[in-house]
Amino acid sequence: MGVRQMIEADSLTKEYGNVTAVNRVSFTVTEGELFGLLGPNGSGKTTMIRMLTGQIPPTSGSARVMGLDAAKDPIGVRGLVGIIPEQETPPSFLTAEEYLRFVARIRSLDDVDERCDRWFDLLEFGDKRNVLCKDLSRGTRQKLMFSQAFLHEPELALIDEPLINLDPIMQRTVKDFLREYVQGGGTVFFSTHILEIAEEICDRIGVIHNGRLLHAGQLEDLIGSGRHLESFFLDLVRGDAGA
């Protein structure tokens, strides 16, 4: 059996007026991989995730996610994958539990009680299940967004800054979960500008700067060559900025 491609980006480009947020980016992510897209603030990471999940159409190029064209069948893609956007917060006037139930209904899931309980237990926020989302701390909101993305046990998760607002203990829990999830056959594509996270959990990384993909490759190869991710990243980005 061949390797299953979970994400195939082909010359993806997004322009906002005169600004090119993502510029002819091509890469693939295979099943069972934990791929980290690294880049400084404003480099095009969020735009990339939004295009891959059909939230915004590309100006040119295409993206196939789990075999579906993200621009032509965005609902199909979003039905299959789990997404954690960076900015979005859960609805203010639902409680944490109500929000998970709301998402479960949208995704037509069964066993809603068990699914909710599992995530309240894993991320240790069951005591907040009856609190309105607007009254939750940022960290708890992030836990909730994390829970909604994995509620339907997707084969692929796309996460924009996965550990944002989480305390060190919860960061450990989430990192462990992501590794286990990938070992169990799941695939993760996440973006971050925190290199330590990538260095710790990624199989493969991509470096994006000014909307262009400067590098994509195995993290193992990089470390094997004796280089640190930080110096590699800084050399790439500074070199590109100076070019």
Binding site: I75, S92, R107
Partner: peptide
């Protein structure tokens, strides 16, 4: 007033 489609943009909702 208290809703925005961005709340649904990452879910399979039109």
């Amino acid at each position: 007033e208290f809703d925005s489609f961005t709340s649904y943009a990452f879910l399979p909702v039109e």
